[in-house]
Design a protein around this nucleic acid. Sequence first.
DNA 1: CATTAGCACTCGACGGTGGTGAGTGCTAAC
DNA 2: GTTAGCACTCACCACCGTCGAGTGCTAATG
Lengths: 353, 353
Amino acid sequence: MLNDRQKMILRMIVDDYVLTAEPVGSRSISKRPDLGLSAATIRNEMADLEELGFLEQPHASAGRVPSQQGYRYYVDHLLATDSNLSTDDLSMIKSLFTEKIDEMERIAQQTAVVLSGMTQYTSVVLGPQVYDTRLRSLQIISLSEHSAVVIVVTSSGQVHNRTVTFPDGISMAEVNRLVTIVNERLQGTPMYKLRSRMLEEIMREVSRNVDDYEEAIRMLDQITPAFGADEEAKVYLGGTTNMLLQPEFQDIHKAQHVLSWLEHHERVVEALKAVPRDRVFGEIPSIRIGGENQVDPLQDCTLITSTYHVAGVPVGVIGIVGPTRMEYARVIPLLRHVSKGLSEIYSKFYKGS
Amino acid sequence: MLNDRQKMILRMIVDDYVLTAEPVGSRSISKRPDLGLSAATIRNEMADLEELGFLEQPHASAGRVPSQQGYRYYVDHLLATDSNLSTDDLSMIKSLFTEKIDEMERIAQQTAVVLSGMTQYTSVVLGPQVYDTRLRSLQIISLSEHSAVVIVVTSSGQVHNRTVTFPDGISMAEVNRLVTIVNERLQGTPMYKLRSRMLEEIMREVSRNVDDYEEAIRMLDQITPAFGADEEAKVYLGGTTNMLLQPEFQDIHKAQHVLSWLEHHERVVEALKAVPRDRVFGEIPSIRIGGENQVDPLQDCTLITSTYHVAGVPVGVIGIVGPTRMEYARVIPLLRHVSKGLSEIYSKFYKGS
DNA sequence: CATTAGCACTCGACGGTGGTGAGTGCTAAC
DNA sequence: GTTAGCACTCACCACCGTCGAGTGCTAATG
């Protein structure tokens, strides 16, 4: 589609623009020593590239700026596929992963901080999601006569809890009996099946002992959210205000648009989960440039995400949000590297499942 | 210090400026029907008020703007002390508190969302802090041969957990024995004493059974953070991007300054906790205007906070961050009302302690 | 003596104007 | 195919005058 020289020029323009955020003129390209062409020649090529849709002109006498399609071609064909992280970057990542980690959630949070710190973009980390976890243990600990804490531990070591209040008809003793039954019979039940399995067990018990089984079901409904099946995975953001550093977001309203989108975590989760099928497995980053994001506030942004895995199963996503003028050459290998590292770390935790 | 007319004029200026964010001219004040004075008279009074330090002039031919001292006088002397929330506001608050709350943490989060939504400012909620909680139960649930989840439930129904890995020398059986001992002997121990009490118990056991007690202590250190004693209380922010709506933060750098401060939760906690002694008890809001905040990024902001309580003990803080040009007359009773409501809600939960 | 009308003055906001320079497109020559 | 030359475009900036809101001061007024 493009000849070699056009490719080279396109790459130079993108590289230059990513660095300076200023439209790139023909002269500045022709001055590069590695290709001995005059500005006029470059101009001709630029005009062609514009006609083909890879470049845009902010106004008639300005230089050229990569179009969305230009960035797309750049990441698809002009980027070295082998990762080439700087030693600085590598050591930063290394120190992230060798840090002592006391709580699983902290890893995700710390990853967000480090990613945004390294890139000057906003980072997004979708904490490890409950994909195929099973019940390890159900605990219930009474607080007062009519309330208790229900604790669910999954095979992956995640802990969920809910405070529940008992209806008058139900005593602590009855609850305890149910808990014992659950622990005896339902250990290893996949979390998404837990509610229906518990219902079965309650029914069986009810036919023998409990008077008011409607109350029992009502209580079960209180507990259910703790099973985490329908619970949104947690998002950790890092460097949201980095957005304001980017020249393309000097306009307050544009910035507000993106920032308030980031504030609504559920929308961010949704965007992060919309990963193309072919990028779900393996730590190959998915790149969505500008309009490729279905989300309106991200029309001027690029979202690069990478999935991390445990035993081949995708459990979470890390990502970078920045202007379309993104340092692709650095961010892509960075995300690949970090998600690979996360996969390893979490695999240690999840071994028990 | 100020005569009645000066007070009235100052109040009018503050009210006007809070509403419009435009410097207030003498004419617009004189046009008010309730005091029949000409613009010239107002000008004279304004000049006096400026000399006394209550007003400022952005430039020679502009109207007047309240100074920090002006706001201070306004909140101290010119504000009706009896709360007068609009029925709209009251019903908003009511629906917040009657909402079904399944998890304690959600209350705090939801409060942040509602506060920022109602005010167009940024809201800050310091989740209920562990002040005088005791150990209710310690659970340990094994994940794999060498790792387990430690769960601590406090008398207030809060659940903390940590994943720990055992050193080779220690077996699950030994750990279980320790847990049983702790549950038998240490229930009701104040959380802050828990570590030392556990140490005692371990020592006692060690002298009889366990070989390597250094390992036991190392493990204890892994668990300790879960006791929550030294753990920072969680902060929930609402409407951080509301900051960008305020005319005083149209300047990106100013906005960035404040927003990045808000991003560092530990600093926010510190600021929230620095409540004047006389405002710790009772739900009387504390108001820090501009420079009264020791924190640099808040020099142009007002932080209004209100403490909420359980059984007379302060357990958390809610607050609003906005420009010094804040709707004091609305925000102050609002916070008072909401913190009172939170006190009631949490009191129900904490009853068990 | 407090109040007020009148007036000169100040200063930011706004809009128009011309110069500058970076960058382009086109053409003709190599 | 490449390039030098040239006319052209257009954002940016500095400058300038106008406008109007608002002030401070002074002198007149009840």
